[in-house]
């Protein structure tokens, strides 16, 4: 883990933040910090405080479900251009899943508290931010529904 932001990582270059209002993006950029994870590192753990939002720039992250007496199961992987985490946005602000780096992974992070405050303080920008986040959630919900159908197993 590193707290020093390498110059080459810029929120503006990330798919999620692309074409965002420049002034709002500048405020977010001020708060962003670099994160790096070695392969195998646990990034978030189910039940722990959801204290940041991560924009992935390289590597691969597995979202894992732990079920007693069953092997750890990966239900989705995330890669460059994708974002990790929305549990930070809603009470009780606890992670609902494990996330582990499958490969060495680089990301920019935004601390949950200041990010929530910024979204609250600027409701129009906050609304537009949610407009970007909700399709991500909807896409993952759709993925989960289709996985439940076991389409390839038939």
């Amino acid at each position: 883990m590193s707290d020093e932001a390498p110059e080459e990582l810029r929120l503006a270059d990330h798919r999620f933040f692309r074409d965002m209002d420049p002034e709002f993006l500048a405020r977010l950029t001020e708060k962003a910090y670099a994160r790096t994870f070695e392969a195998g590192a646990l990034i978030v753990r189910e039940g722990d405080p959801a204290d940041e939002f991560l924009a992935l720039f390289s590597g691969k992250v597995a979202l894992e479900i732990i079920v007693p007496d069953r092997p750890r199961t990966t239900v989705q992987t995330l890669g460059p251009g994708e974002v990790l985490g929305w549990s930070w946005l809603f009470s009780p602000h606890r992670w609902r899943i494990d996330a582990r780096a499958v490969k060495p992974t680089r990301a920019l992070g935004l601390a949950a508290g200041p990010l929530r405050q910024l979204l609250d303080d600027r409701p129009a920008d906050g609304y537009r931010f949610l407009h970007r986040l909700l399709p991500v959630i909807a896409q993952r919900l759709e993925n989960t529904r289709l996985q439940l159908l076991d389409l390839h197993g038939r």
Partner: peptide
């Protein structure tokens, strides 16, 4: 669709 920890590829649709 799903994998164990021995899979280093992608998981998802």
């Amino acid at each position: 669709d799903t994998a164990g920890r021995d899979w280093y590829g992608d998981v998802g649709l």
